[in-house]
Amino acid sequence: MTALVLLDHADGRITPAARSAVTAAAALGEVHVLVTGAAIGAVAEAATRIAGVAKVLRADAEIYDKALAEPLAALLVRLAPAYDHVLAAATATGKNVIPRAAALLDVQPISEIVAVVDAETFVRPIYAGNALATVRSTDARKLITVRAANFDAAAAEGGSATIEEVEAGEATPAVSRFVSTELSTSDRPDLASARVVISGGRGMQNGENFKLIEPIADALGAAIGASRAAVDAGYVPNDYQVGQTGKIVAPDLYVAIGISGAIQHLAGMKDSKVIVAINKDAEAPIFQVADYGLVADLFAALPELQAELAKAS
């Protein structure tokens, strides 16, 4: 069996999410990757070196430049007959393209898988991750998006794939046209999509003390969040709130400062990859979910943390 992975890349680099999709595909058979865009020679070159990739298909043409769904889906539909599985990371591009291609192939896509059981059986979260469904596809061909956090990224080096050119599709009268992108320029990443989140709770005691968190957030490139207790107490605005009634986040690293860990808060961050808790109450429920817990007075620990991060990072 052979699987084709639509490879995400940005600024000339293959994203780690795309390499996670390669790992998922490797569990299904031989892996070919499809690199699309305009002037993407270097990216395709890099793709040949990803561990586990047997062949790189390169579709180098202007119409693929902005990864618009319409031409990319048409390209996948053309290539799909040679493959049993077509995958992409569940990124903005993957989620945009895969279902469209699936519909054109008369296939029900399988979104955001977190595990491969066998060639036709996959595990995927439903109800915002509050349940995991194991589903089996009866379609002859499977179209899949992959939740990157659940698969280790394939090594960027170590492979030696060959490159095969793919003919670009016809530039049919375009129904959609790229206008512009506006990447977040704010110093702080968006809470909902940040790779690192650092949140303060009632233990911060007032809004002024949130300033202690800022330099640490700067050092980590983190977004700042808060528990509902801190929001209710008026320390920070409502849009900082992480939790059941606030934002649901799942960063690589979540740092909870002075947060007791009420279940309403846990509901908003429990899917984080690594959770750190700093709290002076050793019995605080947050420690039940923390990978690393530090029982300490946060007013002593925060300046120390700031100093420690400044050292040899």
């Binding site: 029900q108 596809s137 817990g293």
Partner: peptide
């Protein structure tokens, strides 16, 4: 086209380790 074989609760997150200092944490 999809058959749901089973639905399960996500695994409960286990607590990790307590560290003794900020330096150890970092």
């Amino acid at each position: 086209r999809l058959t749901t074989l089973r639905v399960a609760e996500p695994p409960v997150r286990q607590s990790g380790v307590k560290v003794g200092s900020v330096a150890e944490l970092v």
